[in-house]
Write a protein that binds this DNA or RNA. Structure first.
Lengths: 196, 196, 196, 196
DNA sequence: CATGAATGAGTTTTCATTCAT
DNA sequence: GATGAATGAAAACTCATTCAT
């Protein structure tokens, strides 16, 4: 039991170290020793807990994506649509996505990195696809409360996510002010409200 | 003069070789020798024409972005808004962007790669920012024909580009059918028409 | 006493695990953990029972060589030359060596491995030399029953063992049929009979 | 032309360096840097001329085996059996094999090493098998001059080579005197003469 | 006695870059 | 201008060994 915890603790420590490293260098340029240094452990340890650098990456992606997926799920699960107006409900969704994801510069960077890696790495791509499909399904289910046509609900969801994704891309590389990002997000939110 | 052309020819040949390479491997994993092999030249030559691997990248990014920017400009410059209905005009813009960029899987991959590199490379980031600012200005200018509020026109443009960017991201990693991409693009286009 | 036995048991278990490992990988490429896994014990244990990887090897060699030496001795000790014809006696020796050693592919592999290690490892070489001297003496003593000249008896023994060794080498690497190994062994046996 | 020669020169230099290294350490324990040091070149060079450590080994084996095969062939090709008595002919063969191979301690070590590697490495095994088959065929062809039965000639050849191989094994690990190696070789030669 | 976490030296390999010819 | 040989830094990974629990 204690043993197990130590293992999980260490693994998390390493994944968090990678998270830190990715703010400075690409995964490719981040060496095992870089991660070890940030994690404050011997580099051999990384090979003890993970079987390769790619294995660290795969676990890291799961960790990041599950983390935010879980946060979102926890939030929306407590929201009873019957007690909220449509506008309030949509606003809550946007608030969460905007502040926690789209405008979270550090996270946006991580996601750009993961998208890029997925271009050339099948396993990462599979993980990414699965995660996005799930997110699409979950959000589509939520807005289905206001839209009868399921296909349309899904298309709107995809468009929303694409937009958020694009805005995240911008927020990762541009300064917030230079693109008036908050205003654009607000305008988009209004349009979505009209549609629903 | 002839000399100059031969030089430019060679450089282009190398940049195109990099373009080919990037369909298979990330820039980081693409070696100088990989590029040289595809270009059909000796690897030493690459250091004759470019002072480093990064220099090749910088020139490549300029080449790609200018290329598509020029294509777009050439197209829209010939379109006289007075002779087109708003719907036709918007449709032409979307047609170009969708087919030549957003749904161009190969190009989308390149852009994802460039975005990622820009996260960690100042020079690339500066180039990317400048290019996008220019694109935003140009498109905003075009749709300003239909919108009086310049700030609003710019925000709509940013939202449009963000959306396209997100869709390009999707098209680079998902199969076109799995996300119903064409339909989503069409639906978005309709919304934009309503706005303008 | 029981303690002692448990200890010996464990040691044997480890040596046998090494034996299994050597059918797949060279000693050099066999890791402590490989052996531990096959033995079904924790790898730390190996350092408890043996002081180093080399120590395991040395014990293993003793185990293998003593094992076969003992088997042979047990066999021949019961054979009373007076009750056997020369031909029968020689045939028994050959039968044992051929079937248990020369044609025993697994064992031949082990011996090739040991010979190789002995090239670069003094302790192993010393052990190997001592063992072969002993075997030569024992077999020479046996055939001395038929040969008066002791030096000649020893030379014939050495030739016999060299031949067997060479044939074992072949059997470890060639398929039995491709070299007609059984026939060659039989022909050799006949020649030896003529000599004695 | 000059280029080609430089390449071959360098390759040979590296293979000879490996040959030297193998007198001290097993191939497994010989590092790329060890070879480079002995060859007096930068270790990166080894990867320029050979694509991996295994590639060096494979080339080395070819080099060693072809070298001795060629020496033998050159020798025997000039011997016209019609001008030699059987005894002289056989003696010449033995003289070559004994002095150049069996009693050549350094070479014997190399061969033991190669045999061992072949146990665990398919490519090396294939090369070894092919070489021995060729040697068997060539020697069998030579002694066929004195033996009508081709199968028997082949069996005798195999026995001879097995014996030489075993003696080489001994010479690689035992001192020449301790096993009376010369005498044993002489005795064996006499027996072969009787057979033919 | 047993476990498994941790260490750190050492290995092969890759590669941008330089430079003599 | 072009070639390809050479360099050397840095990477991922392996593993015998140690040692606290």
């Amino acid at each position: 039991m204690a043993r197990k915890n130590v293992q999980e603790e260490r693994k998390l420590q390493i994944l968090k170290a990678l998270d830190t490293c990715l703010q400075k260098k690409s995964f490719e340029k981040t060496s095992i020793k870089d991660i070890a240094t940030v994690a404050g452990v011997n580099h051999g340890v990384l090979h003890y807990y993970f079987k390769s650098k790619e294995d660290i990456l795969l676990n890291y992606i799961t960790y990041v994506m599950d983390d935010y997926g879980t946060q979102a799920r926890e939030m929306f699960i407590t929201m009873n649509p019957e007690k909220w107006t449509k506008a309030q409900y949509i606003e809550e969704i946007f608030k969460f996505v905007n502040n926690r994801i789209t405008l979270n510069k550090n996270l946006s960077r991580i996601f750009v990195e993961i998208w890029e890696i997925s271009l050339y790495n099948k396993k990462v791509r599979a993980k990414l696809q699965a995660t996005y499909f799930r997110w699409i399904d979950e959000i589509a289910a939520m807005i289905s409360y206001y839209i009868d046509d399921k296909t349309y609900a899904r298309d709107v969801t995809i468009a929303m996510i694409a937009f958020w994704e694009g805005m995240a891309l911008f927020s990762s590389v541009f300064s917030r002010d230079s693109l008036n990002i908050e205003e654009v997000l607000k305008g988009f939110q209004d349009r979505i409200l009209e549609i629903l």
